[in-house]
Amino acid sequence: MIHAVNNFIQHFLQNFFKKKRHIKLGLYGPPNGGKTTLANRICLDWLGEEMGSVSPIPHETREVKVKEQINIKSGKKELSFNLVDTPGIATKIDYEDFVKAGLSSREAKKRAKEATRGVIEAIKWLDDMDAVIVTLDSTRDPYSQVNITIIGNLEARKIPVLIVANKIDLKKANIKKIQSAFPQYEVVGISAKFGENMDKLYESLFEVA
């Protein structure tokens, strides 16, 4: 019965969003999951230009960025959205980690300060989202409390969620582990960096959003 109620809510939400001309599609997740790489891939695929800079050092995206009016099409299906790339959500930020990654002490302290503001801003934006892609690094343990808290919050706010298992081009990638951690959601394995399986992601977006 709970499954039936969930289906009803899901269909209600789908119909509700179909009536909207544009939706806000958020990219959420922990730092270095590949949110901006995915945002760049989506923008390259549909607008021909990238959205933001990426870096192996965590918290490269420290403020919310919005790319407006992205239209994606597949057959007769069409979806129009504003793409919202958010800073990675973390429970701790230590500037010394940035120093270890090669930044000067001054740069590291500045980055840490901006990163804390970014997390707060990302959380504030949660309420504005119509649908969210939670972007997880498929080479990492998905059972982190941050992941559970983000997804739990979206669930509590009744915001439709699609989980992306990113970085499937890497040997350690484990999509099944993410599927077992969040069995109630559709999980799509992609490589945002190389554009692998993006068609499946767009198909799933039509279903969720």
Binding site: I93, A112, T116, I120, T149
Partner: peptide, 15 residues
């Protein structure tokens, strides 16, 4: 759930 995100936000403010 909301308090959990509130805890994260307030933690960030206190760092």
């Amino acid at each position: 759930r909301e308090e959990e995100t509130g805890l994260i936000s307030t933690t960030m403010e206190n760092i």
